[in-house]
Design a protein around this nucleic acid. Structure first.
Lengths: 217, 217
DNA sequence: GTCTATAATACGATAGAC
DNA sequence: GTCTATCGTATTATAGAC
């Protein structure tokens, strides 16, 4: 918000990045004006164009940069082999810690895909697919060895990622639970989910669709 | 997109609602212009103001209306008593079916809370809390009876809701799985998660935080 | 690299005729 | 209830001085 006049370069770039992350995470890309962003950094709106060619490029750089970080960090953290349970545990611990450390970046990577122009979107979606694949491989492996009992590994992949990514929507550093506690709790839930159990079918009388709306069908 | 000139009232209202849902779900509230909305309906932009006082009121009506529907439908679907497993099964089946039937509404209720002005947001958040409470009660009950083995029912509530709500981000009617199949798969995963299992701790050597970033700490 | 100034356009919202 | 027309403002992006 404050600024020593006439200054900087890399410092300004980092300040823009941080302010942009916060503004987009809070209000959304479309709702963030460049005047607002510039004011947050402490420069004039036109000066932003020394750091990107247009607003869309700024968003894409943020998202793409974060996806690259995420992939590199995941690859460094994952166990190359071992039991499926051990690999899934490591995946979950990584995911929780990463979401806790960088909730804004993670959130934007989900919520602002809609704001990317087609070419940019395609690039990000491809990276996202790779990421899902890494979890899917662990689940497939566990089902093959009998460690896991999943009815549908693709659905389990999406379910686990949604569950873990949800963290960045409610996590606050000052909250009740430490990162380690969150890792234990979520690892427990993810492993239980993956291990499965007796099929739940017929645990309750079949009534799969009726009474869905209050009044209508 | 087309329109018989000079016409309607309730028909226009419903058309605006439907077009607004689709536009907001696709592009987001801030990115949707009223000119765009009017064009989709086939009227002029100024005519929209016969149906709401301003853009914010339109969003709030959409979200609030849907939350009321959701609550009424859930109350009609839930089992008032029975085993925790049966109640959780019913909750999950309901949630899946509802997300499959009305993915746009559900999605907006999550993604556009940020676009609500403070008073409107407070009203919606209160309704959301009630909803979470209903799942939380089932989980608490199951833990008390020993049916479930959850380390933290609040985290489990958020995890299960995130997992189920994720459906509306990828579901397509023409997809591989029927609603019934999705209900069975997700019921199985949610029940397995709730039942828990032996604590997962120490399933893998402790390494909860190291090597999170690719290069840095 | 930052500033001021501004172009060109789009926005939400209103007024008044029909 | 819908239209046309427009007000006042905000937007992204550019040009040129320092």
């Amino acid at each position: 918000m404050a600024r020593i006049a006439g200054s900087s370069g890399p410092r300004t770039e980092e300040a823009i990045r941080r302010a942009g992350l916060a503004l987009i995470a809070t209000h959304g890309y479309a709702a963030m004006s460049l005047r607002q962003l510039a004011a947050e950094v402490g420069i004039q709106q036109g000066s932003l164009y020394n750091y990107f060619r247009n607003k869309q490029e700024f968003l894409f750089d943020l998202i793409r940069g974060h996806m690259l970080d995420l992939h590199a960090a995941l690859d460094a953290a994952l166990l190359p082999d071992g039991s499926a349970e051990a690999r899934l545990t490591r995946f979950t611990e990584f995911h929780v810690a990463y979401h806790v450390e960088r909730p804004q970046e993670v959130f934007i990577c989900y919520s602002e895909l809609r704001s990317l122009e087609p070419d940019n979107l395609a690039a990000v979606v491809a990276m996202r697919r790779d990421y899902e694949r890494k979890l899917g491989d662990i689940l497939d492996h566990g089902c093959a060895t009998g460690e896991f009992g999943l009815a549908d590994t693709r659905m389990a992949t999406l379910a686990i990622l949604a569950m873990l990514s949800g963290i960045c929507t409610w996590y606050k550093p000052e909250g009740r639970l430490s990162t380690t506690a969150l890792q234990e709790i979520f690892t427990g839930m993810v492993l239980a989910l993956a291990r499965g159990g007796e099929p739940a079918a017929a645990a309750v009388p079949a009534r799969r669709r009726g009474a869905l709306r209050a009044g209508a069908a």
